[in-house]
Design a protein around this nucleic acid. Structure first.
Lengths: 329, 329
DNA sequence: CCCATTTTTGCAAGCGCGTGCAATTTTGCA
DNA sequence: TGCAAAATTGCACGCGCTTGCAAAAATGGG
């Protein structure tokens, strides 16, 4: 591909190569007349600047790394998919990087990232801000989790888990639900604090009571297992709260099909995320909604500021709202 | 990042920059002693070749485009996710490109692909082989759908839909299922032929009979709508075959929760893909399994041949098997 | 119409690396 | 040990583009 170079365009347009370069560079100094000649020639020749060459020359890069985990869950692949789309539409080049349990910090990244990044979007608990910062030559990385310290130069997209949790607890409290089981996120994950600990705090504020809990890994299967363990240890509570929808669905299926329980009559199960399946009538899962689109929007807003307007604020923070979706009540 | 260049390594190792370049190039001519010195210096300095610069210089590229559709379904984001992972592990740079309904052929791609590609993997019906071929400088594109002509230089991964369909029809036929509804893929999609037409052919071979059919778009919702339309037009058949699992689940939920039917007692519903949800007890969906992993393996096998061993065969073809998974019988 | 500003333009030096070629070193064998 | 062949090395040019700088052209005010 890309057989035609700026030189050829320059020759055809009767100008220098610099002129060509400048007409394709935002706010560079070119007269309208020259630009027009160049554009015409470029069109005729089918010229498009070679991004590789230009990033080499300019020392910049329009590559945005999307750092995610290699084990897919129900939500992240969609997040990545939409981010990809949105970045691409901005003319940036998304570059998805998966890290797994062998992740060894910056060293691992160095093996993968063989080129300078404009910035990175990190959606992987294992990855620390400090691992990524050195690779980002234009803007600080955008952290979707909380693996950063107060003074690191990063942008942050938070999820306001507390509000959704608060909505849920008061909703259930109003309807006389008293006792609770909990399937938490992995203790090492960032969701552990915001969701699971958050729930405990919310329970403390109402007169609902945590009876028992289990740790899950966000997979459907871990929801099944957690329900087995919890129900083997004691009587059913009024409700079960799971740190994501996949686990909630696993728990619900086990409650219904293994234990022959009626959900929500025998036990009320609540998830987190509001994945599409949650609204399907087989589940009708009440859940705390956290919109992928909102998250993408928040990220893109930051990128706009940093990349387009080259904003210089120290740290840009955006918070994505959550809300309780009551289903099947 | 990447402050350290080959020059610095060369100086520290007391060799020329060519030597550095050569030690990092597969099967280049360097003595073991030199390579060792270079490697040592590189390690001390934290040097890693800059892929941007090297692809510019060599005129090659280790970028592999993954061309997919911007509207996510249940399967494709996982395919992309796994491909991403696998390519990354081979040292290639995956670059996901989403096309939507505004896709205008090569012109659209040119706007997005601002750099030479090693090769491309195409999983988007709208994209023709001829649109992509010019961008691939090293190996021909790998087409996952059938948008290529006999003599175009492409590699192909087929799915052997027919076998799974055959297994299913004989299984059902053996159990005395006679009448069938069908929810097809979009008429314009590549799956339309292989799955929907394939089923018709299989039915013709048995004494099962197609009663009615509807066109769907692979979404859960279109499965719901299709069931509504079909059931408004006539009596229930013995079974309903849907061209993917998402539509089958939509149809099943509508059958159960809108029409109060028992599935599979009143009607047997069958999907295609075997997504994880299909095996969940709420659905227990019989389906024709098409493994994402098999597809990824087939693709990677081709990439291995082309990229690593620089194979020169005209067209490499791989076929991914399918098999009928009978659940809840 | 002239000269001081401002704007536009072309030149040329890189960006970091690959690679053909010729020079140099090493190797193998007599 | 000597010499031809083979392997290794360094030089220098170029990949396609950006950009500082100085020269050229356009602009504007008196």
């Amino acid at each position: 591909m890309q057989r035609v170079t700026a030189d050829q365009v320059a020759e055809r347009a009767g100008v220098s190569r610099s002129a060509v370069s400048r007409t394709f560079t935002k706010d560079a100094s070119v007269s309208a007349r020259t630009a027009e000649k160049v554009l015409k020639a470029a069109r005729e020749l089918g010229y498009r600047p070679n991004a590789i060459a230009s990033s080499l020359a300019s020392g910049s890069s329009n590559i945005v790394a999307l750092i995610t985990i290699s084990k897919p869950d129900f939500r992240r692949p969609y997040l990545i998919h939409h981010l990809n789309n949105a970045l691409q539409k901005m003319g940036l080049v998304p570059y998805t990087i998966c890290v797994d349990e062998n992740y060894r910090g910056a060293e691992t990244l160095a093996q993968i990232i063989q080129m300078p990044l404009n910035t990175a979007i990190v959606s992987a608990d294992a990855v620390n801000a400090s691992d990524v910062i050195p690779f980002c030559i234009h803007s600080p990385p955008i952290m979707l989790n909380s693996n950063f310290s107060q003074d690191e130069r990063v942008d942050v997209v938070n999820v306001d888990d507390a509000t959704g949790i608060q909505q849920m607890t008061s909703y259930l409290h109003d309807r006389d639900y008293k006792t609770v089981w909990l399937v938490t996120a992995r203790r090492s994950s960032s969701a552990f604090h915001s969701r699971s600990v958050g729930l405990l705090e919310a329970l403390a504020r109402s007169d609902m009571k945590l009876i028992d809990k289990e740790e899950g890994d966000f997979s459907y299967e871990s929801g099944q297992e957690a329900f087995e363990k919890l129900s083997s240890r004691g009587p059913l509570p009024d409700c079960l709260f799971c740190a994501n929808d996949a686990m909630a669905m696993g728990a619900m299926d086990t409650a219904r099909f293994v234990h022959g329980l009626s959900v929500p009559q025998d036990i009320r199960i609540i998830g987190f995320d509001d994945v599409p399946q949650a609204s399907w009538p087989s589940y009708n899962l009440s859940t705390i909604k956290q919109s992928v689109i909102d998250t993408v929007d928040a990220i893109m807003e930051i990128i706009q500021l940093r990349v387009a307007k080259s904003c210089d604020e120290d740290r840009i923070t955006r918070t994505v709202p959550t809300s309780f979706i009551a289903r099947d009540f």
